[in-house]
Design a protein around this nucleic acid. Structure first.
Length: 313
DNA sequence: TCAATACATAGGCCGCCGGT
DNA sequence: ACCGGCGGCCTATGTATTGA
């Protein structure tokens, strides 16, 4: 805020100014405001003091705005419309005309799976709306969600934080992939073979353990991890051109498998699946725009859940 | 005729002050 | 230290009047 302190200024004066500039008459502006001409004139006097400008001058043809007054009218109306929307908390969100930007935080796996159906829905219903995806910083997702820097976070595990709301979107299973023609892999794979192979591990947080390794440890086994990468999408590319294998979300493989000449198999151990959730801050629970976006995300995820085509190689 | 001004009134805010 | 009443001050709005 520059120059003017808002405290000490009666913002209702701006309503009077809008009426005065529109009506170009103190009397008619007063009628419109529900005030007497006198009160309106006093209001005009206060406005003149505030703006340091006559705003309206008396001529033979009636009251006409000064250049300053003329120039104030458009931004003034915009400001009053905004304040009105602010107060009427029915501040509507109209997808057809909105040019709003929404920020999602997610992993590249979720981008690859969820963005295609989400973008299709959003583009159709809200052509002016822009989506922006940022990397999911799991360490601190609550603060940007609260501030609005991130509209919605998409992910699997979130640390409990007061004020955060979440909703399950879709479940995912893990599959094993290797390149077609891999010398050690046939149609199915047993645990012994699995343990002999060298693995790619995708670790968003940078650790070197996954649920697969936990599971193996319980059975008294360990696998050899040859490569740890932080992105889901790079891993299948690497697997396609090496003898490394990868245990990864099934939907990702379904999207990339055909193009990459990958073979998909069931893992030889019970690898638990996971559920992708959307998380938001309760502060934005009733924001019509946020609400609309969350509905779009939920609906887009629904289209994933129903397309459960069998994954073959 | 209509805006501007002078004066009057009402009501809110706030600090002072006395009582507990 | 806290509470409540009182009065001064300020602002908004009104009526009456002036004056272009």
């Amino acid at each position: 805020m520059h120059g003017v302190q808002l405290q000490g200024v009666d913002l209702n004066l701006l309503v009077a100014l809008e009426a005065l500039l529109s009506e170009r008459s103190v009397t008619r502006a007063g009628v419109r405001l529900g005030l007497t001409a006198s009160a309106t004139s006093h209001a005009l006097a206060r406005l003149r003091a505030t703006f340091g400008d006559e705003l309206l001058v008396r001529t033979r043809g009636g009251m006409i705005p000064t250049a300053r007054g003329e120039q104030l009218l458009v931004p003034l109306r915009a400001a009053l419309r905004d304040v009105g929307a602010l107060l009427s908390n029915t501040a509507r969100f109209d997808p057809r005309t909105s040019r709003r930007e929404f920020v999602l935080a997610s992993t590249d796996y979720i981008e690859a799976v969820l963005l295609p159906p989400l973008l299709a829905r959003v583009s159709a219903a809200a052509p002016g709306v822009q989506l922006r995806v940022r990397p999911l910083e799991l360490s601190d997702v609550a603060a940007p969600l609260e501030s609005g820097a991130i509209t919605v976070a998409l992910g699997v595990v979130f640390d409990a934080s007061p004020g955060l709301q979440q909703q399950a979107l879709f479940s995912e299973e893990m599959v094993l992939v290797c390149r077609k023609g891999h010398p050690a892999v046939r149609r199915t794979i047993d645990l012994a073979t699995y343990l002999r192979l060298r693995h790619v591990l995708v670790s968003v947080r940078g650790g070197s353990q996954s649920v697969v390794d936990d599971q193996l440890a319980e059975l008294g086994h360990a696998r050899q991890i040859a490569l740890v990468v932080p992105h889901f999408l790079a891993a299948p590319l690497i697997v396609a051109s090496s003898d490394l294998v990868l245990t990864t979300p099934a939907r990702l493989v379904r999207r990339l498998g055909p193009a990459l000449e990958l073979r998909t198999l069931a893992p030889p151990l019970a690898v638990p699946g996971f559920t992708v959730r959307q998380v938001w801050h309760e502060r934005h629970q009733d924001d019509p725009g946020h609400l609309w976006l969350r509905q779009q995300i939920f609906a887009a995820a629904k289209t994933l859940a129903t397309s459960k085509d069998p994954s073959r190689c």
